[in-house]
Amino acid sequence: MRYRVKFQKYGVMKFVGHLDIMRYFQKAFRRAALPIRYSEGFNPHQIMSFAAPLGVGITSDGEYMDVDMKEEVLSEDTLQKLDSVMVDGMKILEFRALNDSAKKAMTAVRAASYLLYYKEDIFLSKEDLQSKLAAFYGRPEILIIKMTKKSERELDLKPLIFSFEVVELPEVLREESAYSFGLKLCVSTGSTDNIKPELVMEHFHKSAGLEDVSFGIHRVDLYTFDDNEELISLGDVGYDVQ
């Protein structure tokens, strides 16, 4: 039985990198004594795969991993058991079963949304920021040069940015932010056209004349396309076992 686990990553945990988070969860499943399935062979490992690695320094409300359980488990009960062995800053939000036909989180993920907030004064009002953003995102195309290991290629960011707007920040992010407002960005994510928020911000800042400003990144959620090509939360693909 496959399950999709959704979790939060907050506070100091943002400094724990993706590989270490994977090891952390492997041990957490053992501490919680959950019947997770192991691979065959001399070095069996838990069957666990993450949707989209989160960069170091980024907090999140929407992290996902798929796990394979040896037997059917109840969503609420399992969620509680796993959550009870978490450290401060890690919280389990969902533990939902997947249909056999559901794609793996890693292949299903198509978009990610982020909140971006300024850690210091950028000498702009909310309105100023809105107009700078309109000037950037309002263009018909946003051509950039993307450097890869082997070559560089021209890329149009515009169709890969699904939305980009100025928003009021939730309470939890205001502590770190210099302003009550920030930016909300939804970008293409996944195995093709994986756009990092840092890249978009770099080009937005260039266009807005904001060089070297320090900003924080918070991931809000990850999305896939439903049958109607609409973005839906990766967690909504699963269903609760009661």
Binding site: V12, F15, V16, G17, Y24, V56, V85, V87, D88, G216
Partner: peptide
């Protein structure tokens, strides 16, 4: 500070909070 932790190798060495 976050800035310092983002500059150094393996910042998780310095945050405590382990299991």
């Amino acid at each position: 500070s976050d800035d310092i932790l983002m500059q150094v190798e393996k910042p998780a060495r310095y945050i405590g909070n382990e299991v």
